[in-house]
């Protein structure tokens, strides 16, 4: 934008020419975004519009949909399971995000210095991100099996008895969160590492002259300058966590009881196991609204505290 102004404003051209240029820019811009816009409208917006319409219907997918007005919305507010699922989702986010972000930050700090093998570590830490969810379920269920799993085996070697991870209503959700921390910490670390590498070395050099110690350096220099990267990571990870589905789907299918039924999994259950497509659509809108609010709050919070321009 500034470039355009610089170019057009420098020479005193006629207003018509400027308007002409603006029209051309607009045309070019729309040509450039046309393919994405097409895909966006046809395969993202259209389905979402249909979801909104569906939320006004009762439909088992087979028969013809029945218009029910706001009945699905009324049901949502009285359905204790939907609130339970929302709470589970919040619990999951609270377990997952801090653990993942702090671990990723520590890893990034460790790998940000010149050291032997840092490249190898980097690759190894990102490997879990590439794991295929379908296969992961089998493997992790082995790990957490109370009788033959390696985790309880190690615990028993230390002289303790491990809990029944996946069949315990207390432990199943922490297990799901841990598996996700395992899977995404390396991926998150990449973004934070990149952020760290962008911090100019001179800043640290200046600080060391001032006699700043390591802890002060972390909290006064590194973290503030890392804020933009942290922001990106938090916004996208929180959105992703609110939509947690894969791990629950392959490991616990929402159980035991309702203990790992996240909102997105509850939506799946309603749509594809109980075939309440209309109600599932309504629940999606609720989840969408929740994510929108949470993201908005994050934007407000970070914008106040960072020079980084996000729009």
């Amino acid at each position: 934008m500034s470039a355009n102004i610089a170019v057009t404003g420098a020479a005193s051209r006629s207003r018509a020419a400027r308007r002409n240029r603006r029209t051309r820019t607009t045309l070019e811009a729309y040509l450039l975004i046309a393919p994405s816009l097409f895909g966006f409208v046809a395969f993202l917006v259209a389905p979402v519009v249909i979801v909104f319409v569906l939320s006004l219907f009762s439909w088992n997918l087979i028969g013809s949909p029945q218009f029910v007005g706001l009945a699905n919305y009324r049901r949502m507010f009285t359905d204790s399971q939907s609130w339970h699922a929302l709470l589970n989702t919040a619990y999951y986010v609270v377990l997952n995000i801090p653990m993942q972000t702090v671990l990723a930050l520590l890893l990034a700090l460790a790998l940000n210095r010149k050291m032997r093998g840092s490249k190898l570590f980097r690759v190894v830490f990102v490997l879990p991100w590439m794991a295929m969810p379908v296969a992961l379920g089998v493997i992790w269920n082995w790990f957490f099996d109370p009788r033959s799993g390696i985790i309880d085996h190690v615990i028993s070697l230390l002289g303790f008895t491990g809990p029944n991870w996946l069949t315990s209503t207390t432990w199943a959700m922490p297990v799901i969160a841990s598996v996700n921390v395992w899977q995404y910490t390396g991926y998150t670390m990449l973004f934070l590492l990149a952020g760290l590498q962008a911090i100019p070395q001179q800043v640290y050099e200046a600080a060391s002259l001032d006699g700043v110690n390591a802890v002060q350096r972390l909290f006064r220099i590194t973290l503030p300058l890392l804020r933009p990267a942290l922001f990106f990571v938090l916004v996208t990870n929180v959105i992703g966590s609110f939509q947690q589905f894969d791990t629950v789907f392959v490991m616990t299918q929402g159980g035991p009881g309702q203990s790992t039924t996240t909102m997105n999994y509850y939506i799946y259950q309603q749509a594809f196991q109980l075939f309440h497509a209309g109600y599932a659509a309504t629940l999606s809108i609720l989840l969408f609204a929740v994510i929108l609010v949470v993201t908005f709050v994050q934007f407000r919070y970070f914008r106040k505290r960072t020079i980084y321009d996000f729009s």
Binding site: L166, M251, T252
Partner: peptide
């Protein structure tokens, strides 16, 4: 007990 066999999380 169910801690071992409960579906879908059991062995």
């Amino acid at each position: 007990p169910g801690t071992i066999t409960n579906t879908p999380n059991g062995a």
